[in-house]
Design a protein around this nucleic acid. Sequence first.
DNA 1: TTAATGACCTATC
DNA 2: CGATAGGCCATTA
Length: 109
Amino acid sequence: MGDTFARIYDVVRQIPRGRVATYGQVAVLAGNARWARVVGYALHANPEPGTIPCHRVVDRSGRLAPAFAFGGEGAQRRLLAEEGVTTREDGTVDLSVYLWNGLKEGETP
DNA sequence: TTAATGACCTATC
DNA sequence: CGATAGGCCATTA
C-alpha cells in the first residue's frame, strides 16, 4: 500500500489519551483535507489493535463509529470512558470539550 | 482500465 | 432535527 495509510496511522497514533479527533481533522493533519473518507476506510481496512487508537476517532458531530466496526455496540463507548471521555445517551461525545487540539500530550501553544 | 465502494464532509430543503 | 444531494479520494474487484 502507499504511504497514505501510514500517514493516517501516524496521525491517529498521536491522538493523546482522553482526547478525540474527527476524520476530517485527521485528514488535514495527515496532509490532505479531502481524505476524511479515506481515513475511515483506512481505519476499517487495517485497524491494528494496540497500535492504532481508532476508538479516539469520531465523525464531525461527535458521533461514534457504527457498532459493527468494533464488534460490539458499546465497545468504543467503553474504551473512551476508560480514558475519561464521557459519551452522551445518543452515543456522541462533546467535541467542545474532548476535541484534540492537534498537539501532543503535555505540549502547549 | 473502468466502475463501484465507504468508520466522511458540506450545503440545502 | 432529519433527509437529500453532490463532491472527494484511495482501495478493490
